[in-house]
């Protein structure tokens, strides 16, 4: 079938931050699906695996890397799960649809690829223990969540990396219950931001050995956005000295909703409530025919943070079925560092 229109319809029906574009059906009710509740007690390793009774879920890894040539690189590896119905069955008629996105960004180029599959036949899926997340030949797997190998291939790029966690899991919002709007839409959201990464990028010009750090987000929900919210800007920043910050802004007709998590070098966190953080686009670039902010000012006065965030290259546009911008950034100002930026709805 024409996946383009089918899945456009399929995914756009759900209020995902990634594809939220002011679609009228955003606030649709999640009939038959479970809803995130505050006070949920996470159960690991089981919760590293899929939750078919929730409508949407992802395993979302980004990494800032430095090559042997001294240049900066970035990679993305994402597996999305979207449920048509809140259960899983064997065979073609499984209602679980999987979608993979992979990308490599260099200072002057951006490569990406996309995969689609359904559950039920083994072409894509996630198992919690031993951990394996895969779609086609793309794979993120290891004996446990702390030690993983990661691979993906596109038409003109690919990578093989190994990830080793150097710190604990980090829970956003209220112990992993992350509120996404003033109306209370929420998701379960935790991260592993402490991966040390090494491996090889395969690029059109040849292979490149790289090392760096990775950040993996885990999130699942059934209806995380409010009806008026049209897109979001999401930052994962790692500062020199070991502190990290996750921050996002959901842009809505009734005003923006912001949320952030300050992550200390030891893994302890502080949740920063709506309105505390200021995010200001300083410059936009024309990418893929759209005006995309690639230079930002982020200010968090409570912690004396006032930094400029600059895209490694403006070209990091994901021209996948649902388009968005996702790429590595550098941080300068009160704190220096690196990170990843994701922007949707432009």
């Amino acid at each position: 079938m024409n996946v383009k229109t089918l899945l456009l319809y399929l995914f756009i029906s759900f209020p995902l931050p990634l594809w939220a574009q002011g679609y009228a059906g955003l606030g649709g009710s999640a009939e038959g699906f479970n809803e995130p509740q505050s006070g949920y007690a996470f159960d690991f390793p089981k919760d590293h695996g899929p939750h078919p009774a929730y409508r949407i879920e992802w395993w979302y890894l980004t990494a800032n890397l430095r090559g042997e040539d001294g240049r900066d690189y970035g990679i993305q590896w994402t597996l999305f799960r979207s449920a048509l119905k809140p259960f899983e069955t064997e065979g073609w008629q499984s209602p679980q649809i999987w979608m993979g996105h992979a990308a490599t960004t260099t200072p002057d180029a951006h490569f990406f690829a996309e995969r689609l599959s359904r559950g039920g036949i083994g072409q894509a899926g996630v198992t919690a223990q031993p951990f394996e997340a895969w779609i086609d030949e793309w794979r993120m797997a290891g004996p446990d969540f702390d030690t993983l190998t990661l691979s993906a291939n596109g038409e003109d790029f690919g990578y093989d990396l190994s990830l080793t966690a150097q710190g604990p899991l980090v829970f956003h919002g209220d112990a992993g219950y992350s509120v996404k709007s003033a109306d209370g839409q929420a998701s379960y959201y935790y991260s592993q931001p402490f991966y040390a990464v090494e491996g090889t990028l395969r690029l059109p010009d040849g292979d490149m050995r790289v090392t760096g750090q990775g950040w993996l987000d885990r999130e699942w929900s059934s209806q995380p956005l409010a009806a008026d919210q049209s897109g979001w800007d999401w930052f994962s920043l790692s500062f020199e000295g070991g502190d990290k910050m996750m921050a996002f802004r959901l842009r809505g007709a009734r005003g923006d909703f912001t949320s952030a998590t300050w992550i200390n070098a030891d893994g302890s966190t502080e949740t920063i409530p709506d309105g505390s953080i200021q995010m200001t686009p300083l410059r936009t670039d024309q990418v893929a025919g759209r005006a995309v902010p690639t230079h930002w000012r982020i200010a968090l006065p409570d912690r004396d943070v006032d930094v400029e965030v600059l895209a490694l290259t403006p070209e990091a546009w994901m021209g996948t079925r649902f388009e968005y911008w996702e790429g590595p950034v550098t941080v300068t100002g009160s704190h220096d560092g690196i990170g990843y930026l994701e922007m949707t709805g432009y």
Partner: peptide, 28 residues
């Protein structure tokens, strides 16, 4: 395999109709 198969005119036409088929109905 309607998830993987290249665009077929018949499906595109059905999807562009006034009452497009729900993916859940088509696939399950």
């Amino acid at each position: 395999d309607m998830v993987a198969y290249p665009a077929l005119p018949g499906v595109t036409e059905a999807e562009q109709s006034t009452a497009p088929p729900e993916p859940a109905d088509m696939l399950t």
